[in-house]
Design a protein around this nucleic acid. Structure first.
Lengths: 203, 203
DNA sequence: AAATTATGATACTAATATAGTATCATTTTT
DNA sequence: AAAAATGATACTATATTAGTATCATAATTT
C-alpha cells in the first residue's frame, strides 16, 4: 500500500494528496470525488493542491501510471524468466490477484466512462497492455512448443482470452455481477487457465 | 436481497427506485448519489420518482426502516426465545453478520454525517436500538443468574459493550480500518463474546 | 372503445456545489 | 534574515442538481 510513490519525486504535501486521492478514488471512483474532499482528507489547502496538480484527473493519472508501471514490470519479468510454464501461471495468478487488490473496480469504471481527461489514461493503460502482450505471446508460443498447452488450443485464441481479462473489466454488466475487481479477476483468470492447461502435465 | 419490500405496498416503479437506490447507496453512501442517477438505474423518469418520493432521503429512510425493522424483529424474537444462552449468542452472531451484509458502511457513514434529513433516520435507528436493548438486558440478566456469564462481569458493562457495536460503527476512524461493515462487526462481536462467556460452560 | 390513471420526455428555474484563481498572512526551510 | 512553501479567505464563473410544469403517450380499468 505505502509502496506507492516510493521515490523522492513528490513533496510531502503532494504525497499526502496522492495517498488521500487514492483512497477516495478506490472507494467511490473518480467523478464522485471532489478536489476539496481530497484536500480535506490530505489535510492541505486547496491552493497547495493546485500548485502541484492540474486537477483531480491529473492526480488519478499519476496514481494509475505508478501502479500499472510497477505491475507491468513484474509481469514482464515473470514471463521473461526461465521458470517452468505452470509455475509461471501460478505466479501470474498471484500477481493478478495482487493487482486486483491494487486497482479498484470503481476506479476502472470511471476510467472507461467517456471523458476527455480519462482518455489519455485509457491510452496509457492500453499501451502498457499491448507491450505486455508481445512478451506474453512469446511465452505462450514456447509453452506450446514444450507441450504445456493442449494441442487444439490456438495461441491466438489464448491471447484473445488473455487480453479479455483486461477488456472484460470494462463491461459494466459483468462488473456489476461482482463486489470487487479482485473477485472478478480471479474468476476469469481461474476459469481461463483451468481450460488451457494440458491434461498430460498437471501442476 | 430481494426480500426487501415484500408487500404490495409499493408500485412497480417505486420498487424499481428502492432497489436501484439501495444498490447505489450501498456502494457510495447517500450524498454522493443523485436523484437522476437513481432514476437512470431504475429505468424510470425523474417525474415518476417525484410522484412517489419526496427526495432521495425519503427513499433512504424507507430502505433503512425496512431493513432495521426486519432485523430488530428477528433479534427480539431471538432474545425472547427459550433456547440456551450460548445458542442465543451463536444465532446472534449470524444475525449480526447477516445484518452487516444488509447495511453498508457507506450508508451508515452518511447517516451519521450531520444533515437535517438524516437526523430523523438516526432517531429511528436509535429508538429501535433502545427497544432492543431492554429485551437484551433481560436476557443477559437471566443468563447471568443461570451461570452462563462470568461472575465478575457486570451486566451494565456487557450492555455497554453490546451497545458499542452500534455506536462504534459511527466512529470514522474505526470504520476506515475495515473494508466493509461485515468485517468490522464480526471483529467487534467476536471479540466481545469470547471475553464474556464463562469458562465453566464452554459452547 | 372510452375513460382513467400511470408514466415518460422535455424544458425550465432556482439553488447549490465545484473548479480554479488572486491575494495576502503565516509557517517552514535554507 | 531571506526565500520558499503552505494556508486561509474570498471571489467568479461554470456545472450540477433538485424540483416543477406541461403535454404526449402508454397502460389499466371500466
Amino acid at each position: 500500500m505505502t509502496e506507492i510513490l516510493s521515490g523522492t519525486k513528490y513533496s510531502k504535501s503532494a504525497k499526502a494528496v496522492l495517498l488521500a486521492a487514492k483512497d477516495l478514488f478506490w472507494k467511490y471512483g473518480i467523478y464522485r470525488v471532489t478536489v476539496e474532499e481530497i484536500c480535506e482528507e490530505a489535510s492541505i489547502s486547496k491552493m497547495t493542491f493546485y500548485r502541484s496538480f492540474e486537477n483531480k484527473y491529473h492526480v488519478a493519472d499519476i496514481i494509475l501510471k505508478d501502479i500499472t508501471s510497477k505491475s507491468y514490470t513484474e509481469m514482464t519479468d515473470l514471463f521473461c524468466s526461465n521458470i517452468p510454464f505452470p509455475q509461471k501461471i501460478n505466479q501470474f495468478l498471484s500477481l493478478k490477484k495482487e493487482m486486483a487488490r491494487k486497482v479498484s473496480i470503481e476506479f476502472i469504471k470511471d476510467l472507461y466512462a467517456e471523458n476527455e481527461f480519462t482518455n489519455s489514461m485509457k491510452k496509457y493503460f492500453e499501451i502498457s497492455q499491448a507491450k505486455l502482450m508481445l512478451i506474453v505471446k512469446r511465452s505462450f508460443v514456447e509453452a506450446k512448443r514444450d507441450g504445456w498447452i493442449r494441442d487444439d488450443m490456438k495461441i491466438e485464441f489464448i491471447l484473445y482470452m488473455f487480453e479479455s481479462i483486461g477488456t472484460l473489466s470494462k463491461d459494466e454488466k459483468l462488473l456489476s455481477l461482482f463486489d470487487n475487481s479482485e473477485e472478478l479477476t480471479s474468476v476469469i483468470v481461474n476459469f481461463m487457465f483451468r481450460g488451457i492447461l494440458s491434461d498430460k502435465k498437471v501442476v
